[in-house]
Amino acid sequence: MTKLFKRKMMIVVVLAVIAITTVTIISINTTVIANSPVTGEIQLPADVKQVLMQSCYDCHSNETKLHWYNKLPIAASLARRDITKARKHFNFSEWNKLSPNEQNGLLWEMYNMVNAGEMPLPSYTALHPGAKVSPTGLSILRNYLNTIKVDPAFNADKEKQADSQYLKWVNRYAPPDSLPVSANGIKHMPEYRNWQVMSTTSRLDNGTMRVMYANPVAYNAIKTGRINPWPNGSVIVKLVWEKLVTASGDIRPGKFLNVQYMVRDSEKFKDTKGWGYAKFETPALKPDNESPSKCASCHQAANQTGYVFDLSTKD
């Protein structure tokens, strides 16, 4: 071994020691994210909660447990970004801040995101393999959801509300003077009535029924199987009603709740995977401008069909 080589080796070792020491000091002094107090913990059966604690709590609660490698440079900022985003979406430690409807919707969304392999994030489970939800864990979640299904029953009040809405509609119907527009520029399109029906659904999770329409561009994309990605100009419209049980036991559309849009423009809506989302509530068609980001997040579970959920499939 030459003297020169020994000197080079020494320099490398010194630099490595300096680098490791620096990283260690930075890591010790790094606060990735603070854990705020638990103010309104979710209440669930113990086995269900155990699954969520094991797989979701590190990001979706104020009880985040970090490892040494989460504090390293770059890793710390990635962890901070993911946890901040996760807590904003929902936080098990502040669950009581959500309305019962929001809580219910999120529980079903959680299951479906896990079932689709979208959650926990693969980048997280790569380092925390124990956080992956096992088939047994999925089964525990599914069995719990089955206990909170909305089972529609005949309800005279709901029938009255639906009838009152219907009578106002048929007696005072007039074309609107101007069409409502959402904050992201999507306008209500009454011409959807002339489009083909894409599908119909019956929701057991929230007691609604829906009819979906596809405009000619979207209809053609479905027929030709060109939906990954969907062509620009595709529009999908979803009408949502409360289920109403009739005297015969059949279920028909009751009170109209909202109309929802997916509009394809890969450039304009690139932040939400090329789809613009809009929702107009009640017969007044009031834009719900908070929905687009929530819609985009949930629609990840339908990544196989270009983020569109309601397509009928074959076995």
Binding site: A75, P122, A126, N303, Q304, S312, K314
Partner: peptide, 27 residues
């Protein structure tokens, strides 16, 4: 250093979920 770089790569990788392959039903 190698371990750390590996961890960063794992953090940055975003593998998509595994869905059961589906086939659309014709109209």
């Amino acid at each position: 250093a190698i371990l750390y770089l590996s961890l960063i790569l794992v953090f940055c990788s975003c593998a998509s979920g595994v869905n059961k392959k589906v086939h659309l039903r014709e109209y």
